[in-house]
Nucleic acid binder design. Structure first.
Length: 568
RNA sequence: GGGCAAUUAGCUCAGCUGGAUAGAGCGUUGGCCUCCGGAGCCAAAGGCCGCGCGUUCGAAUCGCGCAUUGCCCA
């Protein structure tokens, strides 16, 4: 924030001993005077004095006019700002930046690549799979918000054993429909468990696929297309989209791998095991542990294994990615990815930056598509949307049904996306139906609700039916209430939140920011009448504040992939 | 057996690179619409921040050990 820089400059100019020191500015706690403070522990030594003395020295300096008062409190210095001056410049800033408020445009057009979702083509995705896609999709939105040119990739694992089993299971049953895939998939796995011959046949099909048998390739392709199309339709309901689909089968053999094999051979990391398979000994290229030391690249018959194709694919992505190269992966892929990254690094290339997330668990235990014990994303969305529909119908009985449905759709998406995104990725989430279906408190709809309240005020203020393109009231923004101040200082932090969220990266942090702003807005809304304000000046200031808050929330919700309806 | 991650209020989770009295929501208890949308607001109760050592002016935050849970490897 520019304000901090100004203060820092003032301090360094007057106390040259502190050149290069780190200043920890932070909001003042409730019980302390001032708007924010500076802790003086860290640099007191540089002034050859105790922290309270250092604070005293700093408090005695002359600061720019926006600082109204400076006082020392033990080892802290507390600054009080000219609230109206600060508010005016902040609101001006928000309104002039509009949809870009909060962005520093660090990307400046740099191309980046991001792979996410990449679900195995089988049944309708469950909510655990959605976690991958939502984290990836929101990261893509965040990167775009920061000005990066994002290319979203989806890796289609179109040659797993499961597809072979599905092919056998549905043989002669005519066209497979996506609605029965889960059923057939569970049945096929059950059958494979009890019938070794059946499983063996599936395996043989896979072998043929690996060797490029055209007939099998066609069968597999047909099944994969049906599964993928069905899965993408569900994902699209949540707002997930992709720029490019890369099929595993197109990396069956790949010229890029010549270089990899040569490198491994040169490091003496390649050998043939007793089954005739081509194996890498990762310890030869720097693997530290015994676990995961060996990885198979090719079968005895010369066909490639999953890791082989994945290395080829990763190399292709590296060629395409000019800036960052991200991948979102479940926690079960941690060691696998470490192995992959090591091989890529040994080639002298930079592996993708992986973002791991932990599983969503049900209170009864874990979800398994194979066993059919899942909460399907589509069911969850249906349920949430139908509950939202009830509320909308109750609130707006005369609204056209189509419009009601559209609003309910936005709320449903808001609820689902927020529920999953608001938890840090490296934590297991316990999924609870009641909690996930709740629209009160910490939820997406709560934030959307704040936006509709603002929209409602603005409609009444302008007398117009739409709230787009309203000019901000002229003049300075005066701050007359603590609730206004608490809201505005929070808005000013948004820029920092966006940067932190991107650097970590951590989308959940932005969900919290949005919630925090919405909560402060609600407090403001309750304490400060806008349209019925005491004076015209206060009314105009509060309208301006409302507009700034709405813009900030819309920007944050946009990153989370949530729309803000004007009515709900 | 080994590796990675997690552990904060009854439950579900925040707490950003160590800083002033650890915060929300749900649930519980009590208030708030003659006033901009009650999907809301205000207040109360509720904490050995898993346990133990260590690092330092200062630890929920960093390090080590242990316990528990999730995931992975042979």
């Amino acid at each position: 924030m520019k304000l901090y820089t100004q203060l820092k400059d003032t301090i360094e100019k007057n106390l040259p001993d502190l050149a290069g020191a780190v200043f920890d500015f932070q909001p003042s706690p409730e019980n302390q005077p001032g708007d924010f403070g500076l802790a003086c522990f860290r640099f007191a030594k540089q002034l050859k004095t105790a922290p309270p003395k250092a604070a005293e020295m700093i408090a005695a300096l002359e600061f720019p006019a926006i600082v109204e008062k400076v006082e020392q409190a033990g080892p802290y210095v507390n600054f009080t700002l000219d609230r109206s001056a600060f508010a005016t410049s902040l609101v001006d800033n928000v309104m002039s930046e509009g949809g870009k408020f909060g962005s520093l445009n660090r990307g400046a057009g740099t191309p980046v690549l991001l792979e996410h979702t990449s679900i195995n083509p089988n049944a309708s995705p469950h909510i655990g799979r959605a976690r991958n896609g939502l984290i990836g999709d929101s990261l893509a939105r965040l990167l775009k918000f920061e000005g990066y040119d994002v290319d979203v990739h989806y890796y289609v694992n179109d040659m797993g054993k499961q597809i072979g089993l599905l092919a056998l299971q549905t043989e002669g049953k005519g066209e497979l429909s996506f609605d029965n895939v889960l059923e057939e998939y569970v049945a096929a796995n059950e059958r494979a468990k009890n019938d070794p011959a059946f499983e063996q046949k599936g395996f043989e099909l896979l072998m043929k696929m690996e060797q490029g048998d055209p007939e099998v390739k066609k069968t597999f392709g047909g099944i994969v297309d049906i599964c993928l199309a069905g899965q993408l339709e569900v994902l699209a309901r949540l707002g997930l989209g992709y720029d490019r689909f890369d099929r595993e089968s197109s990396f069956l053999s790949d010229p890029r791998m010549d270089e990899v094999m040569a490198m491994l051979k040169e490091k003496d990391a390649l050998f043939t095991d007793e089954d005739g398979r081509t194996v890498v000994d990762l310890q030869k290229i720097g693997w530290k542990r015994e676990e995961g030391r060996y990885i198979v690249l090719m079968r005895a018959n010369g066909s490639s294994m999953y890791m082989y194709r994945d290395i080829a694919y990763t190399l292709e992505k590296i060629e395409r990615a000019e800036g960052h190269n991200y991948i979102v992966l479940g926690e079960d892929h941690k060691m696998y990815f470490e192995q992959l990254a090591l091989i890529v690094s040994a080639l002298g290339k930079k592996p993708p930056e992986a973002i791991f997330y932990n599983y969503i668990l049900l209170s009864e235990g874990k979800m398994s598509t194979r066993q059919g014990t899942v909460v399907l994303l589509s069911d969850f969305l249906d349920e949430v949307t139908s509950r939202a529909r009830e509320k909308v119908t109750e609130q707006w009985p005369d609204m056209p049904a189509e419009e009601q449905a559209e609003i309910a759709r936005m709320i449903g998406i808001g609820a689902v996306r927020f529920t999953i995104l608001s938890v840090k990725p490296n934590k297991n989430v316990i999924f609870d139906w009641d909690e996930a279906l709740s629209f009160t408190g910490d939820s997406g709809p709560y934030i959307q609700y704040s936006c509709t309240r603002i929209a409602s005020i603005l409609r009444k203020y302008t007398g117009s039916d739409s709230v787009e393109d309203i000019p901000r009231p002229e003049g300075a923004v005066t701050v007359t209430h603590d609730a206004e101040w608490s809201l505005l200082t929070r808005l000013a932090l948004l820029e920092l939140d966006v940067q932190t969220a991107l650097d970590q990266p951590n989308i959940a942090l932005l969900a919290t920011s949005a919630l925090d702003i919405a909560r402060r807005f609600s407090a403001f809304y309750n304490a400060c009448p806008v349209l019925n304000a005491d004076s015209e000046d206060v009314k105009k200031s509060r309208i301006a504040i409302c507009m700034a808050v709405r813009q900030a929330l819309i920007n944050l919700l946009g990153i989370l992939g949530i729309e803000a309806p004007e009515r709900m």
